[in-house]
Design a protein around this nucleic acid. Structure first.
Lengths: 191, 191
DNA sequence: CAATCGCATTAACAAATGATAAAAAGGAGC
DNA sequence: GCTCCTTTTTATCATTTGTTAATGCGATTG
């Protein structure tokens, strides 16, 4: 199937071709247009996703009704499955395509069964989960202990070039500031 | 064994006495004095913990060398195992007892094996994990979208009475503000 | 009881961030 | 190229939060 799947999987951890094939057998490609919300909070879902091409964000609606960006996903990554499928298969988050997006989806229950049967795939799933948690802890400490300027610099390190590809409003809410403040910081850092 | 284990487990999800016994067979009680750090970042660990009595926090050291509180744990809860054991059994976080603490620990590998063998226990483990993630998402949106005052109010809802039992410095770093700001907010809210 | 230690509170000032509105800059479609 | 529409930047002012340092206060201890 798609060579990109192998690339994504190996960016997570080493995995044999055999195990990879088992995963690939479950995958179905899917294309989604820019701006589309393809997972909704509270929605019953039973799919896991590989992001082959494009950019997405996960987000929640704040008490004030604004979209708060939780994470960004760039080409060749995995759309954090456990965060997505928490609570009896109901998603905790919304996902929106920020560009045209090419996905490969698979049935979550079938993948879970694979994890039980196959030690290698179980390990793979666990590593995905652990990396996701590590990112969350990083973001948490960033929001709690760094200034907005430092958070912007950290964002640029982690997502080089994203700043020029997506609306700044989305980045600002990821950083926990307003888009006006983001604009100020950008100006400040450019001198 | 300890009736508290049953109480903790059932606060997570319904679980049969049989499955509970399998878990209890793995448990070993342990007492820890106030102030002790009993899990260290980067430390190799292979234990999961039930918190029977007392209060703990998980934390990280910020770039400036300060302790940043990530989570609080109060009596009768589970010390988020996956966050703890991420990265090949190395802990991502430090844990400190904020009062004298009574724990029950179990071997993580043995528990993982139980999860594979027993559907009920697997489900239990997954629910623990999902609840933990849901909390992280909640905290994330709080830090990104709420004011410090709103975060303090949310903290009070979630941890009633904790404000009078532990140092305010720990609470302030959990909220992402300084202890001076916390004191100001407390005064402001008391009028 | 006095001295001391650890926190919490206050105060005063500086810096960062938010809110609102207006201006400028880009992009999409015609 | 022009128009319309959205996004970004700028400007102004209000508010919040940080920093530093002093003060208060309770618990512990000698």
């Amino acid at each position: 199937m798609d060579y990109k799947i192998k690339e994504i999987a190996n960016s997570i951890c080493q995995i044999s071709n055999h195990a990879l094939e088992e995963i690939e057998n479950l995958l179905r490609p899917k294309t989604i247009g820019k701006g589309t919300v393809f997972i909704r909070e509270g929605q019953g879902i039973q799919l896991e996703y590989f992001l082959l091409e494009g950019i997405c964000k996960s987000y929640l609606i704040s008490p004030e009704g604004e979209e708060v960006t939780i994470s960004f996903f760039t080409s060749k990554s995995i759309l954090s499955p456990y965060t997505t499928r928490v609570n009896n298969q109901r998603s905790l988050l919304n996902f929106r395509a920020l560009t045209d997006v090419h996905l490969a989806s698979m049935d979550a229950a079938a993948f879970e069964q694979l994890m039980i049967e196959n030690l290698e795939i179980r390990n793979f799933g666990n590593v995905v989960l652990r990396k996701e948690l590590a990112l969350k802890v990083d973001k948490e400490i960033g929001l709690a202990a760094l200034t907005a300027k430092e958070r912007l610099l950290a964002f640029r390190e982690r997502y080089p070039s994203l700043e020029n590809q997506i609306p700044h409003t989305d980045i600002a809410s990821y950083l926990g500031i307003t888009n006006v403040s983001l604009s100020r910081l950008r100006k400040d850092l450019s001198r």
